[in-house]
Design a protein around this nucleic acid. Sequence first.
DNA 1: AATGGGACCTGCGCGC
DNA 2: TGCGCGCAGGTCCCAT
Length: 266
Amino acid sequence: MPELPEVETIKRSLNRNVKGKRIKRVEVFVPRLIKNPDSLRSFINSLRGRRIERVKRRGKMLILELDKGFLAIHLRIAGGLQYGKREERARLCFLLDDGRWLNYMDARTLGEIRLVDNTESLDFLKRLGPEPFSYSYHTWYRQLQRSRSKIKAFLLDQQKIAGLGNIYACEALFAAKINPFRPASSLTLSESKNLLTRIKQLLRKAIKYKGTTISDYRDAEGKKGKMQFSLKVYQRKNMPCFVCGDIIQRKIIAGRGTYFCPTCQK
DNA sequence: AATGGGACCTGCGCGC
DNA sequence: TGCGCGCAGGTCCCAT
């Protein structure tokens, strides 16, 4: 469920609702989600009594900065965090000192949660490419030129650009009128600039609309996003293109269902 | 270096 | 109603 706009939405909401609060109790129902090398018991013990200082995002990673250490959470496909009452379907939950709960939701239990004690242990963040909003056009073009993969695969590669996932990669390519099968290196300078501009526009709008809810996704208050109503191609196989009326195609690229208009996207 | 397939998981919607 | 299949917002690992 969560790509950059969804993770950003959750981050902002947590900064409003749980910043400064202490964790009183930790309950883990699916231990597999905890990726700490040491024991589950030490994970729980170390978290008890910690205060959440602030929440940050890097790509699709959520980082909860604690008064001692960091809780790094990757929501993968179906993860999410909800603040408020205790959720029946929570896979993990934290009782806070205001008497309310921070619930980790994850229908598919593919998420990853890691408690680390210092910034060096956050080294895995360094493998991520630039954030879309701070990518320079020059560097972007240079990276595209250097690549030998299809543009769609490039957009999904978190080492090339951090935060895009399947929905926004498909939508950005439609907005830029670029066929997802084209080699990244075949984009002209102006196409490449336009694509980055479209990516930023799309992500800004998706953040404004608090993300895309197709099935699972909820923000930290349990509410659905509204960006799904603005999608142009994603999951619209065999339906007419809103621009030209041609039929939207679905093909596999980089192992992912890729939706595009064969007429608009050249 | 890039790609395809499979693995990791659960759950929904659809056709029969 | 029940069952099997396709599909699903992510990423890693392996073989080619």
